[in-house]
Design a protein around this nucleic acid. Structure first.
Length: 411
RNA sequence: CGGGGGAUAGUGUAAUGGUAACACGCCUGGUUCGGGUCCAGGAGAUUUCGGGUUCGAGUCCCGAUCCCCCGACCA
């Protein structure tokens, strides 16, 4: 990608109407723009980050043998009446068609997927079943805030699993928990598995919380066991496992896993015929992961006063090539591009005719993990620098492939 | 929805009640180049919207809308 053609503009100042770190940095660096409160536009840079997070999450969901599908965002009122959540779910966006039909804009999809699954399963042989989607959700928040951390429209991965017994749900839920932890590990995010109540979903749940300044949940962390409790439900301040004293933190919930039991199956009369010939209710779980919220949380955690510092796997590009030369040597650029393509990585090439200082400043602002600089000062050497470090390394073009391959741990 | 703050050019700001200014960005030409170069010229605004007071309103008054923060609620 040529930076001169990229649909973006870095701003010289932070936006005046945003306070949260994620919104300030993402807007200033040209990843997102605000349309209205809690509703953001994802520009090419921001969209690439969403896509990379999506890829990472999708890979883990497929590894659980979950199948991907896409459900509507426009939900008939009847589905929500069936669970009594038309009235109970406060943040439900409701709308009326010209002919008077009423709809909800989907904030979650139990009301849609349970009737759908009912069409397909009838026997114990059809279970277990796991389905997921990555889709835009809508919640009528009383107050949207903190940029991408609490929007009225946001991107979310939602997974639903269906089982013969409650024990199977619990087992599957643990597998999902581990998949989530693998995702956060790849991102380098410290995420705490947090015990909490279940809200309108179920009696209890597991939340995945990232400690950040702009987080709105309060959690109690056990530094020894690396787990946490939501402050709302924990009456004491002692770890249930090791008796350590817990410490207070503000945190943002990026994911959760719920055991739904058979409650939704009862609402929609979702049953299967078991081996013994008896009809039984299906046990289910649901598992959410906020994709756009995760993007915001990453910026909250990974930034410095010069800009964003993206984790490699979700950066908009892996390499940022800066040409700090008056006369560009095209063959030199081409050979670097070939090396990156050979490594199967993407790059942003800053070939703009602007001052070198501006290129360097904007490069730090955007926060692409690996920077390659071509400069007359370096003669025929290439400068390599990681965004997260101050160290630079000079390399000959002939050494570049091997060096990057080892650096990025590519097999 | 309660409390607080705010809305002026694409962005950030300025303007004792006297007819909108500056910086950045943008366009033209030149110049410079390792941390948002410098010079010259140019374009760009019914000052969020609607009323009112006044000879005269960005400024004062009333109403609305939108945005931010705190709270209540919440992936």
């Amino acid at each position: 990608m040529f930076q001169s053609k990229l649909f973006y503009k870095a701003k010289k100042e932070f936006p005046k109407d945003e306070e949260s770190i994620n919104a300030k940095y993402l807007i200033r660096a040209g990843f997102i723009e605000k349309l209205s409160s809690g509703v953001y536009e994802f520009l090419p840079l921001g969209f690439r980050v969403l896509e990379k997070i999506t890829d990472l999450v999708r890979k883990e969901m497929l590894s659980l043998n979950a199948q991907e599908l896409l459900l509507p965002a426009l939900h008939p009122k009847e589905n929500w009446l069936a669970t009594q959540r038309w009235e109970k779910f406060d943040a439900l966006f409701k709308l009326k068609s010209r002919t008077g039909s009423e709809y909800a804009l989907g904030p979650t999809h139990e009301e849609i997927i349970f009737p759908l699954v009912k069409e397909m399963i009838s026997s114990y042989k059809d279970l277990p079943l796991a389905l997921f989607q990555i889709q835009t959700k809508f919640r009528d928040e009383l107050r949207a805030k903190a940029g991408l951390l609490r929007g009225r429209e946001f991107l979310m991965k939602d997974l639903y699993s269906f089982h013969k017994t409650n024990e199977e749900v619990e087992k599957f839920k643990e597998k999902v928990d581990r998949a989530y932890l693998r995702i956060f590990k790849v991102l380098g995010l410290k995420v705490y598995k947090t015990f909490a109540s279940g809200g309108t979903f179920s009696k209890y749940s597991t939340e995945f919380q990232v400690p950040t300044e702009f987080g709105e949940d309060e959690i109690l962390i056990c530094s020894n066991c690396k787990v946490a409790w939501n402050k709302e439900i924990k009456s004491d301040r002692i770890c249930n496992f090791c008796k350590e004293i817990l410490t207070d933190h503000k945190a943002i919930e990026v994911g959760n896993t719920f055991n739904l039991g058979d409650s939704f199956s009862k609402s929609f009369d979702l049953k299967f015929k078991d081996k013994d010939g008896k009809e039984k209710y299906v046990f289910a779980g649901c598992y959410g992961l906020g994709i756009s919220r995760l993007m915001g949380a990453i910026v909250e955690v990974f930034h410095d006063d010069r800009g964003i510092i993206w984790p490699e796997k979700v950066a908009p590009f892996t390499f940022h090539i800066l040409i700090l030369k008056k006369k560009v040597n095209l063959s030199e650029v081409e050979s670097i591009v070939k090396i990156i393509e050979k490594l199967k990585k993407d790059y942003l090439l800053d070939e703009r005719n602007i001052s070198f200082g501006q290129k360097l400043v904007e490069s730090d602002l955007i926060g692409i993990p690996y920077r390659l600089v071509l400069s007359e000062r370096l003669k025929n050497m290439i400068e390599f620098k990681e965004r997260k470090s101050e160290k630079v390394k000079l390399l000959k073009i002939s050494e570049l492939f091997k060096f990057l391959k080892e650096k990025l741990k590519i097999k």
